[in-house]
Amino acid sequence: MSDVAKPKNPEDDWKIWLVVNPATWLMPILLATLAIAIAVHWVVFAIGLGWHA
């Protein structure tokens, strides 16, 4: 395992799609991002930094 070349990023970023198939995982990735965004907004409003902070 140690002879595997280390990736050089960002130029090797595209190789993630040789491991993760976007046809399967693009929607889960987008939905996870949406969930995080909702969670962050929830916390920000919960701590009182809402519209009328």
Binding site: W14, W17, P22
Partner: peptide
């Protein structure tokens, strides 16, 4: 064959679009 089944060309092509959308986000 790659683990995901995508060819190098497909992966690079998809990544270009992914970068555009992510930059807009």
């Amino acid at each position: 064959q790659s683990l995901s089944g995508l060819t190098e060309q497909q992966a690079k092509e998809f990544h270009e679009q992914f970068k555009v959308t992510y930059t807009a986000f």
